[in-house]
Amino acid sequence: MTPTAGKTRTQTQRFWHSVLRDKHLYLMMIPFLLWYIIFCYKPFGGLVLAFQDYKPLLGIEGSEWVGLENFKTFFTGPFFWRLIRNTLLLNIYNLIFGFPVPIILALLFNEIHHSKLRTVVQTISYMPRFISTVVIAGLVVNFLSPSSGIINTFIKMFGGEPIYFLTRPEFFRPIYVLQGIWSGAGFGSVIYYSSLCSIDTELYEAVMIDGGGRWKQIWHVALPGLLPTIAIMLIMQIGNLMNVGYEMIILLYQPVTYETADVIGSYVYRLGMEQANYSLSTAVGLFNGVISLILVTSANFVSRKLGDVSIF
């Protein structure tokens, strides 16, 4: 017996020894892993639907294979560019208008030196995080109502004509972005605020000794201190460019606003659940999933390269 063979044998032995030692830990994991297998991995098998002309009566075995036909239908269909455009634009508007809000909020919270007041303001601003999508959608619909909504009441007060916002495609994107800011910005500031708290107070004092006021402090200390967090959050959001909160969109859109409101997620939902076109729905979902996977993994890769902090 050669020494290497002996070594490998002890290695294998050591491996089995530690597996045996930790047998209870492996036992614990069984229900956990089973859930992942049944509810996350098993559905991957269903992706074959994307390459079939699936008929519920025939099942997966009996349905006809069509190759890439479903993808072709989607790519050449009338909605392809509209869906891509709407998905990307909603995210880009979110990035431009929504992304800076929590950062600004965190900077302003940090400037409240009265700690009780700060806690009160922060606590209030986190509140919408606890309100469900359905209720927020209900508030949006009611507030924008042409007959009795509060927004139109104000418009009428100033002598304007009431507008039925939710039936006008040009208003959908601002509405979506604004509701997102209302519900998410306060809580989104937590992550920035916590990195502001870790900035050394001596840095602020140094600026003050140099005669710098509050703006100088924000500009030269707070903002640079936030940069790594901002960079990571930005990269993460770019990684999610192809994912929109369709659970909210399907509550707010109507056929008349599909032109600007319909996104890939909502289309997948409509195709599958309302039109029972399982195959095409799966194909569109798979297309979206693959693009998202590429975006998210490259975003993750970049953030790992940039620094040791990464979200996942």
Binding site: C40, P43, V268, Y278, G289, V296
Partner: peptide, 8 residues
């Protein structure tokens, strides 16, 4: 990062 999607 990747899930099977709504219909599957």
């Amino acid at each position: 990062w990747f899930n099977a999607g709504m219909m599957p």
